[in-house]
Simulated scan of single mutants.
Amino acid sequence: MSLQKKIIKLLKVKPIIKPEIEINNCINFLKNYLLQHLNLKSLIVGISGGQDSTLIGKLCQITIEKIRSETKDINYQFIALRLPYGIQYDENDCKDALNFICPDCILYVNIKDAVLSSEKSLKKSGIIISDYIKGNEKARERMKVQYSIAAVKKGLVVGTGHAAETITGFFTKYGDGGTDINPIARLNKRQGRLLLKHLNCPKHLYFKKPMADLEEKNPQKEDESVLGVTYDIIDSYLEGKKIDIISKKIIERLYLNTSHKRHGPITQ
């Protein structure tokens, strides 16, 4: 079996999807897990204004509304978190995403002071972090905040990770990669767009160029320029299609080099 086929089998990506079926699968997946754990009463997602968090946020809100309708328990809620670092350049997209999602609750926590405090503490110990490492600090601080709120609100932290990020390792270990449950892990980027289109999401949110925007020296750097390959090509690879040999080598090299991100701690 080729590496491509092994990866597709492992990530469970389908070559063709029906958006309405995948939407229902995600909602039922979240609903069943939440109802199996009676101590949990909320779903929590950080909303960035991009495609992935917008999709997950909408799926979570629909899920909670279904649970409230079925159980008559008004204590269930979806909590959308805004976690900017200082002033976010695309704040209008975040507002549009929240208007589309219509969350039960929106909480704002600016992570800048916490990240700068961590950077300062490290410097006092003689550890000078690079701009890249500081970017990962931001991602982990956001996840730390989500888990603090989850502990108070009896919440489940829902991930936004999908197969195109997983295969390339394009996520921060124990940052955006450290969640409780990932409903769209089996979908690639273009499939996520299809779900948002089916949900009548504003087009500019799912056609927006993906960017992590974690580095200050290279702000608003697009994901594809970092990866060296487009999401469209990555998606085609995940759907079992034949792609050019250079892109294939890039994708498989990224996959092999980031294997440590896709498993838990090593034990004896």
Rank of each mutant, 00 (worst) to 15 (best):
residue 124 K to Q: 13
residue 179 T to W: 08
residue 132 Y to F: 15
residue 86 G to Q: 04
residue 120 K to G: 00
residue 131 D to G: 02
residue 152 V to I: 12
residue 205 L to A: 08
residue 164 A to E: 12
residue 131 D to C: 00
residue 181 I to V: 11
residue 88 Q to V: 02
residue 124 K to C: 01
residue 91 E to A: 13
residue 180 D to A: 12
residue 101 I to L: 02
residue 115 V to N: 03
residue 164 A to R: 05
residue 111 I to E: 06
residue 146 Q to M: 11
residue 166 T to W: 01
residue 88 Q to A: 06
residue 178 G to V: 10
residue 152 V to R: 00
residue 101 I to R: 02
residue 181 I to L: 13
residue 109 V to G: 07
residue 182 N to E: 15
residue 122 L to I: 06
residue 157 V to H: 01
residue 90 D to K: 02
residue 107 L to W: 05
residue 87 I to A: 14
residue 118 S to Q: 12
residue 205 L to H: 03
residue 179 T to R: 06
residue 153 K to Y: 12
residue 135 G to M: 03
residue 176 D to S: 01
residue 126 G to C: 01
residue 153 K to H: 10
residue 95 K to C: 10
residue 125 S to Q: 14
residue 172 T to R: 09
residue 129 I to C: 11
residue 134 K to M: 09
residue 166 T to N: 11
residue 173 K to W: 01
residue 113 D to M: 10
residue 124 K to L: 08
residue 158 V to Y: 04
residue 90 D to N: 10
residue 153 K to P: 00
residue 114 A to M: 09
residue 132 Y to V: 14
residue 167 I to C: 02
residue 103 P to Y: 09
residue 153 K to T: 04
residue 204 H to Q: 11
residue 103 P to W: 08
residue 129 I to P: 07
residue 129 I to F: 01
residue 128 I to F: 02
residue 143 M to G: 09
residue 117 S to T: 15
residue 90 D to H: 01
residue 159 G to Q: 05
residue 118 S to L: 11
residue 86 G to R: 08
residue 90 D to T: 03
residue 160 T to H: 03
residue 163 A to T: 12
residue 100 F to Q: 05
residue 147 Y to A: 06
residue 149 I to F: 08
residue 130 S to E: 03
residue 110 N to D: 15
residue 116 L to A: 00
residue 161 G to A: 13
residue 202 P to M: 13
residue 99 N to C: 13
residue 94 C to R: 08
residue 197 K to C: 00
residue 110 N to S: 11
residue 113 D to V: 06
residue 173 K to Q: 04
residue 93 D to G: 06
residue 125 S to A: 15
residue 87 I to M: 13
residue 197 K to F: 00
residue 130 S to H: 00
residue 185 A to S: 14
residue 144 K to R: 15
residue 117 S to I: 07
residue 182 N to Y: 00
residue 202 P to C: 10
residue 169 G to P: 10
